[in-house]
């Protein structure tokens, strides 16, 4: 137990230290814009399709569940507001961050861990190039840029999934008009921005953790696999853990 706590704190410290290193290189950001664009592309390419598919079905299932309950009370018109709120505040940011962890964080850790194990990181240092500057900084900036778009996209597709189910499932049979009006009447802009803020925080730390895990890898090729697993698991635990506290703070 003591060991676990020590490792946890050590890992936490390493993340903070890495973040400090990265911030020191912030003035060099303009020169890294090319890499920022490249990583934005990679993150988008890897996550947009799957975020779309997943969000659609999440919205759809949510509408199905609530629709079934609400039609017994004759209160189908509330489906829009329930789906709208849950997707925007909770499901979209969490699911998007989970997919980011699964698709992008894993690849990031694998790449950095392999560079570490095969001494490419050492080579960078002997070439007077800080790995934090060219490998971590542009990735963090990229995720900060892409994550709001991704979460927004997820929110909208989730709503759409709810709408399609509400319209075409016979026992609900809600017209699009009523669905969207219910959704719009109940939602505030803040509901959406709170969701986006959540997504931004999740995304940033998931990628920071992924980079830290990659760069902290020691040993041989086996450790690359371990590092990837650890990166994804820690990222997901981080998402669920902080979700609770952010939600409390946003209430």
């Amino acid at each position: 137990m003591f060991q676990i706590a020590k490792r946890f704190l050590g890992g936490f410290g390493y993340n903070v230290a890495l973040l400090g290193q990265v911030l020191r290189h912030l003035p060099a950001l303009p020169r890294q814009l090319g890499r920022v664009v490249q990583y934005c592309g990679e993150i988008g390419y890897k996550t947009f399709p799957i975020v779309g598919i997943l969000s659609f079905f999440i919205g759809a299932v949510l509408a199905l569940q609530t629709g079934f309950a609400l039609q017994q009370l004759g209160a189908q018109s509330f489906i829009g507001s329930i789906v709208g709120l849950s997707v925007a505040r909770e499901l979209a940011p969490v699911m998007t961050a989970f997919l980011l962890a699964g698709r992008v964080a894993s690849a990031t850790t694998a790449e950095l861990a392999s560079m570490k194990v095969y001494q490419e990181i050492d080579a960078l240092r002997t070439m007077h190039i800080a790995p934090e500057k060219i490998l971590v900084l542009p990735r963090l900036v990229a995720v900060l840029l892409v994550m709001p778009l991704l979460t927004m996209f997820s929110i909208f597709i989730g709503w759409l999934g709810g709408q399609v189910v509400s319209e075409f499932v016979s026992f609900i049979g809600l017209s699009p008009n009523i669905y969207w009006r219910g959704l719009m009447d109940f939602m505030t802009v803040e509901d959406v921005t709170d969701g986006l803020v959540k997504g931004e925080i999740f995304g940033f730390f998931v990628i920071l953790i992924a980079c830290a895990q990659g760069l902290a890898t020691r040993g041989g090729p086996r450790e690359i696999g371990f590092a990837v697993t650890r990166s994804v698991v820690i990222g997901m635990i981080f998402i669920l853990f902080t979700d609770y506290f952010i939600t409390r703070a946003q209430l």
Partner: peptide, 22 residues
């Protein structure tokens, strides 16, 4: 201190190469 090496421009040929694989 990394600055020392940057100032004198040092370089190392690694035993295993340490090439950038990508």
């Amino acid at each position: 201190n990394p600055r020392t090496h940057e100032a004198v421009k040092s370089a190392l040929v690694f035993q295993a190469g340490a090439l950038f694989n990508s």
